[in-house]
């Protein structure tokens, strides 16, 4: 579904991703962990070209997104993204946040988009907030709206960049619950997170990144209980 080959990314002279090779299978939940500054966000953002790729190839559903001829907007409709800072549109109500892209990009009518939006809001438990503005929501509610907004495009893959890191502790659970539900429904997901419990319970595979490389990858149980590399061990000893 996603194949990453020799991916490199530099910001000026700072090479942040050095040589990333990875694949993500359909319906797989891949969790990315690693210390701050190791390139996790950059890796994720290369998958939908929010960062330009310096070298290497990323193939999504057989389409090489590094190819100049690829319609990147089309690719992005298939790859949803959820940000740490939610990035809801503050000037639009919750339902309008969700309806915007399906109407503009998928050319749905307002009624169709609203119907789908309300259904998604019901799914994330926020139907009664449809007409509220984002500013009036709690962090956990905002993030659930952001997830619903991404899902409204009916993506085949969902990317999550530390979706619970900006939340008060008591709101982390409600967001993880929605993500878990999504995973159970068979969504292909790449999740950068510090929530090791989620990685263990929901993840099919864990990638450990450090210094711009994927140092180690394995099933969660294996990786957490029997890490092979020293760097993995020292990272895990700090976070577990």
């Amino acid at each position: 579904m996603i194949e990453v080959k020799n991916l490199k990314k530099s910001f000026g002279s700072n090479e942040v991703l050095k040589d990333i090779n990875a694949f993500i299978n359909p319906k797989e939940v891949v969790v990315v962990i690693g210390p701050s500054g190791s390139g996790k966000s950059t890796f994720l953002r290369c998958l939908n070209l929010l960062e330009s790729i310096t070298a290497g190839h990323v193939t999504i559903e057989g389409v090489d997104i590094t190819d100049k001829k690829t319609d990147i907007n089309k690719v992005r409709t298939e790859v949803g993204m959820v940000f740490q800072q939610f990035n809801l549109f503050p000037h639009k109500t919750v339902i309008d946040n969700i309806m915007l892209a399906p109407m503009r990009v998928r050319k749905l009518s307002a009624e169709e988009a609203r119907e789908k939006g309300l259904e998604l809001l019901r799914k994330v438990g926020l139907k009664e907030k449809a007409d509220a503005y984002p500013d009036s929501l709690s962090g956990g509610q905002k993030q659930r709206v952001a997830i619903a907004r991404a899902l409204a495009m009916e993506p085949k893959i969902m990317l999550f960049d530390e979706p619970t890191s900006a939340l008060d502790p008591e709101m982390v659970g409600e967001v993880l619950e929605v993500m878990k539900q999504l995973a159970l429904e068979g969504m292909t997901m790449v999740v950068v997170t510090h929530e090791m419990g989620f990685a263990r319970e929901v993840g099919d595979r864990v990638l450990f990144m450090d210094g711009g490389y994927i140092v180690e990858e394995n099933e969660p149980k294996q990786l957490f209980e029997n890490p092979q590399h020293d760097r993995t061990k020292s990272f895990l000893s700090k976070v577990l």
């Binding site: 929010l50 907007n73 992005r76 409709t77 800072q85 549109f89 915007l100 503009r104 990009v105």
Partner: peptide, 24 residues
């Protein structure tokens, strides 16, 4: 993040400007 969110939803630059950035 506003532009990134709009673009990540598949909206093009002009759409993102018109519907997300300019009104704010």
């Amino acid at each position: 993040g506003q532009m990134e969110a709009a673009r990540s939803l598949g909206m093009n630059h002009v759409q993102s400007m018109k519907d997300v950035i300019l009104p704010q």
